[in-house]
């Protein structure tokens, strides 16, 4: 299983699509940093936790789109042709799903890491700011539920029909770039841009960083829903159609 995981991971990380999309993600992240974050989100410092969370939230939709594109490969015609051979491997369907989800998770993390690295370079180079520790926990709270939920939905859609994954792309695009700013904002870009404006201003002229309980509950709901869909997907083995 480890060998298969290693092979799958290598195959995915070295695929042209991933490398190209990683580059696109990096360019987009830099664009967000230099056009939006640089102004300071919700009148806070560009290197505040609010700005950092908004930055992650604004880059997440493209990262999710990348993962969905990679995921579509698992349900494409080519994959179905080789499925008869790969299914002969001594692995259960649940193990296969776990490997695929883990590989997608690592790809997603690599993208987020590259984006975050760019963010760190930006904060350090532009503002001489190095206190990145405070950014980690809120960022993980944004990233993990978002990944689990969208990959779960992606697996479900792909299992029903391959093209349904592609149908998810515009939905992600709309939700990510034009979407709501409330607690149920899946990515967080809208929420972290709007919520600080409702908070009282502190002595330093900025609202202190606090996480809204409604937002935390929404993250838990996304995480739980995604996990349930993933488990349900892994539990029921689909029939292999011979080409």
């Amino acid at each position: 299983m480890t060998k298969v995981f290693g092979y799958e991971l290598k195959r995915m990380l070295t695929s042209g699509l991933f490398i190209a999309m990683l580059a696109v993600n990096a360019v987009f992240a830099w664009y967000v940093l230099t056009t939006e974050v640089i102004e300071g989100i919700a009148y806070t410092a560009p290197f505040s936790v609010w700005s950092s969370c908004a930055f992650i939230g604004k880059t997440l939709p493209l990262a999710v789109i990348t993962v969905l594109l990679l995921q579509a490969g698992y349900y494409g015609k080519q994959q179905k042709r080789v499925e008869i051979i790969t299914s002969a491997a001594p692995m259960t369907y649940a193990q296969t799903m776990m490997i695929r989800t883990s590989v997608l998770g690592i790809c997603f993390l690599v993208i987020c890491l590259v984006d975050s690295l760019l963010g760190a370079v930006f904060f350090a180079a532009f503002f001489g700011y190095y206190g990145f520790g405070a950014f980690i926990l809120p960022a993980l709270l944004e990233i993990i539920p978002c990944f689990v939920f969208t990959v779960g939905i992606g697996h479900l859609a792909g299992r029903l029909h391959c093209s349904l994954i592609y149908a998810l792309l515009p939905a992600v695009f709309i939700a990510g770039f034009i979407g709501a700013s409330g607690a149920f904002d899946l990515f967080g870009g809208g929420f972290f841009s709007a919520y600080p404006l409702t908070l009282p201003i502190g002595a330093d002229g900025e609202p202190g960083f606090v996480l809204n309980s409604a937002w935390l509950i929404a993250r838990f709901i996304y995480l739980a829903a995604g996990a349930i869909i993933l488990i349900a997907n892994s539990a029921f083995h689909p029939k292999i159609k011979r080409a």
Binding site: T34, I38, E39, G40, Y43, T44, A45, P46, F126, F127, G128, I201, G205, E206
Partner: peptide, 19 residues
């Protein structure tokens, strides 16, 4: 008045000229 750079003009000078 709430804008970060108006509160902290020292950071404005750190930005590239175009910004």
């Amino acid at each position: 008045d709430r804008n970060f750079y108006n509160r902290h003009p020292e950071y404005l000078e750190k930005l590239p000229e175009s910004y």
